[in-house]
């Protein structure tokens, strides 16, 4: 598969850098006490959400995980409303009822970050069923981790999607650790993709830190899904740079050596290097300008969040039921 156009490559880079800068800021503001509860950072895994979503149409649908900022941003979510949600404000995506783990934007096909490991897999499979029932060419994408691949909903959903040939992409972000526990201690087979064989569907392993490899795998899977040939399981081998959560007392069993190895495989640095070498059209100045613009958009989102009021306490009673 040829590389995406130079403009698409730049767009991918901008998306990945936006994810990273957004989370750096979210982490800072969390530690400053402006963001509450818990924040899970996606830093190091940006190429997965970016490469997958670059292969999607606007009306395609995704579902995310507790580590969901990257998926939101890659699907086109509004940074202001995301940050306002993290800040617990009225103008947040969920009016302050969700927070970091529960950002959704149904208008852009983002069916929600979900705080239950494997909790979203069957929900988004239902979105795939809806697309099939409608006769639309929409596809639906489930993002989940290596930990979720050990849970029942993964297996139930893949079996159904395969049997009914639903237009699905099951994207496993194998970051080698299920919370604090190494995946090597919990996965019976080190490759999640191998499980696809049990459902008679393609299981593809890609370098999850190579946005082009992810994009290519996603494009093939999307074409297969739109053609009515059913789901694909894509396993993206990747790594989160930070601990499971940003909590100050968050345990972390990983070795510095392992973290260092993976940080050398930085998906953003790799794309920058590629743009500079392969295209010969991307200068240091251009990269600096792009990063500055990204930082400006993040700063603007914080300004927006801080300007948004907290919800009225009695708003806790709103939205229990739809009319």
């Amino acid at each position: 598969m040829p590389y995406p156009t130079p403009e698409t490559q730049r767009e991918m880079l901008r998306t990945m850098q936006t994810i990273r800068r957004f989370e750096e800021r979210a982490s800072d503001d969390y530690h400053a006490g402006d963001i509450y509860g818990v924040v899970h950072c996606y830093i190091g895994e940006e190429a997965v959400a970016t490469g997958i979503c670059a292969a999607l149409n606007d009306d395609d649908q995704i579902i995310s995980t507790h580590r969901g900022h990257g998926h939101c941003i890659a699907k086109g979510a509004n940074l202001d409303r995301m940050m306002a949600e993290l800040y617990g404000r009225e103008d947040g995506y969920c009016k302050g009822k969700g927070g970091s783990m529960h950002i959704a934007d149904f208008d852009i096909g983002m069916l929600g970050a979900n705080g239950i490991v494997a909790g979203g897999i069957s929900i988004v499979t239902g979105a795939g069923l809806a697309a099939q029932l409608e006769g639309s060419d929409r596809v639906a994408v489930s993002f989940f981790g290596d930990g979720a691949s050990n849970a029942g909903p993964f297996h139930e959903s893949l079996n159904i999607a395969a049997k009914w040939k639903l237009p699905m992409l099951y994207v496993c972000e194998n970051n080698l650790h299920s919370a604090q526990t190494p995946a090597s201690r919990t996965l019976a087979h080190e490759d999640v993709a191998a499980r696809a064989a049990g459902y008679g569907i393609p299981g593809v392993i890609v370098d999850g830190n190579d946005v082009f490899a992810v994009y290519e795998a996603a494009s093939n899977a999307v074409a297969r899904a739109r053609a009515g040939e059913g789901p694909t399981l894509i396993e993206c081998k990747t790594y989160r740079w930070r601990k499971h959560t940003e909590r100050p007392n968050q345990p972390d069993q990983r070795t510095q050596e392992e973290i260092d190895i993976w940080m050398k495989r930085d998906p953003i640095a790799r794309l920058v290097d590629h743009l500079k070498s392969q295209q010969g059209q991307f200068s240091d100045e251009e990269w600096d300008a792009m990063d500055a613009a990204v930082l400006k958009s993040i700063e603007a989102s914080v300004v927006y969040a801080k300007a948004s009021p907290f919800p009225a306490p009695e708003a806790a009673l709103d939205d229990l039921y739809a009319d």
């Binding site: 069957s122 979105a127 409608e134």
Partner: peptide, 19 residues
């Protein structure tokens, strides 16, 4: 399939898509 968890969740996703 006998997979009530999946059915229950799929209904949620299908409902959010207009069904």
């Amino acid at each position: 399939p006998i997979a009530e968890s999946a059915l229950t969740g799929m209904a949620i996703g299908a409902a959010s898509s207009g069904f």
